[in-house]
């Protein structure tokens, strides 16, 4: 694949329109892109030049907002971060697994956000606020630095076989969010979060499969965060 030269790629996209289709079907398209373009550019090409009815989410298009997570060539990835030269001339694109499809590549994220809200993903501190800020040492901040990077794209959760198997499993993204606050020295609700995660739908459903870590576009060590929460539970005997 020569750099910078336009090329033809074949796209196979899983389509579904609830108003007209009874079943999901595969749409086959050709797009003219460059090897250094992203899969998102190929999807744009299809939508703008071939079939305007194609629906997919994207916002910032720079790997920050996490809205274009999808199953690309069998793996969860952000369409705006994957280059054409990394996936080749044949590209298969499907919506994220395990979430209800609204249309084409757009899924209903509400079940995912419901699990996210269950772990209280916000700072809980009932002490009166100090005059300046709640201070924290570099070491204390470092403890949960990795899990602050989460953009809630759902790539990790929807790549997890435990999430596929049980609709009530909180999933790696919710555990990552819980980790971010459990190890925050300023937070006062870590015990409560650990109790939520100790339920049968919590961290013990994790089987260390690492699909989540491989899928995370922010390279968060998701499985390690889950294991750290497990370890903390054992330490505190929750």
């Amino acid at each position: 694949m020569a750099q910078g030269e336009p090329m033809q790629v074949k796209l196979k996209i899983r389509r579904f329109n609830p108003e007209t289709d009874k079943k999901r079907w595969w749409g086959h398209y050709q797009a003219e892109v460059e090897p250094t373009d992203r899969v998102l550019d190929a999807l744009h090409y299809v939508k703008w030049h071939v079939d305007g009815t194609l629906a997919f989410r994207r916002s910032c298009a720079h790997g920050i907002c996490g809205s274009d997570a999808m199953l690309i060539n069998g793996r969860n990835q952000l369409a705006c971060k994957v280059l054409i030269k990394e996936v080749g001339r044949k590209i298969t694109v499907e919506p994220l697994l395990g979430l209800p499809v609204i249309k084409d590549l757009v899924v209903d994220m509400e079940p995912f956000f419901e699990q996210y809200r269950a772990v209280k993903p916000y700072l809980v501190n009932d002490d009166p606020p100090p005059a300046t800020e709640r201070r924290q040492s570099i070491e204390e901040r470092e403890r949960f630095d990795d899990t602050t990077k989460c953009i809630l794209c759902a790539a990790c959760t929807t790549s997890c076989p435990s999430f596929w198997a049980r609709s009530d499993y909180l999933g790696p993204a919710a555990i990552v969010q819980a980790h971010r606050f459990i190890f925050d020295s300023r937070d006062q609700a870590s015990q409560e979060r650990l109790q939520i995660l100790a339920e049968s739908n919590g961290v013990w459903r994790c089987r260390n499969i690492y699909n989540c870590t491989e899928a995370c576009p922010r390279e968060i060590q998701v499985t390690q965060a889950v294991a750290e929460v497990k370890r903390e539970m054992m330490r505190r005997r929750v």
Binding site: L97, R166, S167
Partner: peptide
């Protein structure tokens, strides 16, 4: 509690 993704669909994932 239900299964979200079928076994066959899950095995297609390129882990």
């Amino acid at each position: 509690r239900t299964r979200r993704v079928s076994y066959l669909e899950g095995l297609r994932y390129q882990g």
